[in-house]
Each structure stands twice: as C-alpha cells, then as structure tokens.
C-alpha cells in the first residue's frame, strides 16, 4: 500500500471511529470548477488540495414519527452540530498526524442565505451521493439523507469517484412519475419542489428556497429580522409591544438562543422518500 493510500485509510478510519457513517474525498479543483466565485475551497484555504467529507447525523426514527413538525427540525439541528464536531476533530487529526493545514468548512453564511462552502456539492464530488429532487439534498443509496460537513486541507489525497448512476429518482418514483407526473417528494410539497423526469433520470429540478424558508423556517434568523422590521415600522405602540413581547417573536429569539430549528426544513419531503425509508428499515425500529 502506498503512503498516500495508508494516509487515506487512516483518515477514513478516524472519521468512522468518531461517528461518520460515510466518508469521501474530493479534489479541490473538482469542487472549484462548479462552485461560484467566493464559495470555492481554494478561496477559503490557500493552497487547498483536498476536501474530506463526513456524513452522518441521521435523524432518529422517533423524531420522524413525531406529529410536531418542528421536532425533526430541532433534532436535525442537534445532529448537524454532531457532524460538524466530527469534521472539527478530523481537521485537528490531519494537522497533528500529517502536518498539513486543515480547517473544517465554516458554518457562517456569506450574505443572507449562502453558505461559504456548499457541503452538499462537496459530498457529491466525494462520491457520497447524488442530488435529489427533495430539497436539492444529497441522497445516498444506503443511508438516505444525511448531514454533511467538510474538511479542507492542503494535503494531496486521491479523490473518490462521483457516483455515476443517480440515486434519485428511485425506481418506484420513476414509475409513479410515469403514471401521474409526480413523485412522493414532489407530491408532498408541490409549492417548493418542481422537477421533470425523462427516461428514468432527472431532466429539470427546482427547489424554491424562498417559499420553502417562509413555510418551514418560521423561527429562523431571517424570520427574526422580518418581525423586528415589522415591529419597528408599527406606528401603534400597543401593537408594537404585542409584537415584540408576543409568542412568535419570543420563539424566534429562543430559537436563536438555543440553535433550535433555525435553518432546518420540516423534512416532509425527506420523510416520504422510499430511499430514505429503506435506510431505516435495517434499524427495525418498532412503534
């Protein structure tokens, strides 16, 4: 085994031991080619050569079964932090073990809604899954929808190959589309999602993030800004008071304080996906 192969094995093993369900490696240049300016790994870390992507943080089946729409979102936000923690540890491991610069992908947004690094794109390039119609998320054949976090490093590593055969649409979704021009995810959220399937593959795909956000991220940081603006513009002092001390504004502030249902979806479109459902069948969770 070459030194490079040994290093890769060590890196993936470290990630697995720390909770990553799947780990892949992509070259910085392959991500740079597709990411818009200002969002390329090479712009975040000078001399970056590789991006290692860890995937995990699957929502508990119990959270999926909760009728309270915000619970899966809350659990998901907790799980996302867990995956970032793995990336954080992995970056530390790479610096100490291999003496190369490494950082975990920053969670900050540039502007209102743009992540600095698109972890989903990194996951695709690292061969961990393909784009799905559901919320434009990455779908993995075995694990369904996972949360992803990346480590950007100057260490040159051999990349994994992106998956050639798209995971989405699943065979039953193709059948359904042929019969009724929809899929389980499209059907559950026709306002946010639009797609066209031809010959079993996605031809067009649209995820309307703006509609999505106003429907499912009602206690996000943007919701806070909106209510604050409305309250400041409200000329009636009594109404202003009601807005600023009322339940809705309280929920947005608490949501920020506890990192609670900030940017997660209601997960309705993920819940119905057959690939996602199959990923839980191995778990045999009983109700």
């Amino acid at each position: 085994m070459s030194n490079l192969a040994v290093a890769e094995k060590k890196i993936k093993e470290f990630a697995r031991k720390n909770g990553s369900l799947i780990t892949g490696i992509a070259s910085v240049s392959s991500i740079d080619e597709e990411a818009p300016k200002g969002h390329r790994p090479s712009e975040v870390l000078e001399g970056a050569k590789s991006v290692i992507v860890v995937g995990g943080g699957k929502i508990n089946l119990g959270a999926y079964k909760s009728p309270m729409a915000y619970i899966p979102g809350y659990i998901s936000s907790v799980k996302v932090s867990g995956v970032h923690r793995i990336a954080f540890k992995l970056a530390d491991f790479i610096e100490k073990e291999f003496d190369h610069y490494a950082i975990f992908s920053p969670q900050a947004l540039s502007g209102a809604n743009q992540p600095v690094i698109d972890d989903q794109l990194c996951a695709i390039k690292a061969g961990l899954g393909t784009r799905a119609i559901a919320a434009y998320r990455v779908l993995n054949k075995t694990h369904g929808f996972l949360n992803y976090a990346s480590v950007i490093t100057t260490m040159p590593l051999e990349s994994d190959t992106p998956i050639k055969k798209p995971v989405c649409p699943a065979p039953e979704c193709v059948e359904m589309y042929e019969e009724s021009q929809t899929t389980p995810c499209l059907q559950v959220c026709p306002q946010c999602l639009k797609a066209e399937i031809k010959d079993g593959t996605i031809k067009k795909i649209k995820f309307n993030r703006m509609i999505h956000e106003s429907r499912s991220q009602t206690t996000s940081t943007s919701a806070f800004q909106k209510i604050l603006l409305e309250a400041l513009n409200e000329p009636d002092p009594e109404k202003k008071k009601m807005m600023l001390l009322g339940d809705f504004f309280s929920r947005t502030i608490r949501s920020m304080a506890y990192n609670y249902n900030l940017s997660n979806t209601t997960i309705e479109c993920l819940r119905v996906c057959p690939v996602e459902q199959r990923s839980y069948s191995k778990q045999k969770a009983r109700g």
Partner: peptide, 10 residues
C-alpha cells in the same frame, strides 16, 4: 429498535 427521541428542552 424502538422509536426514541430527545424532546426539545426549550
């Protein structure tokens, strides 16, 4: 194999 969840404490 039983459904479980941690309810938001807030």
């Amino acid at each position: 194999g039983y459904e479980s969840l941690f309810p938001p404490p807030d």
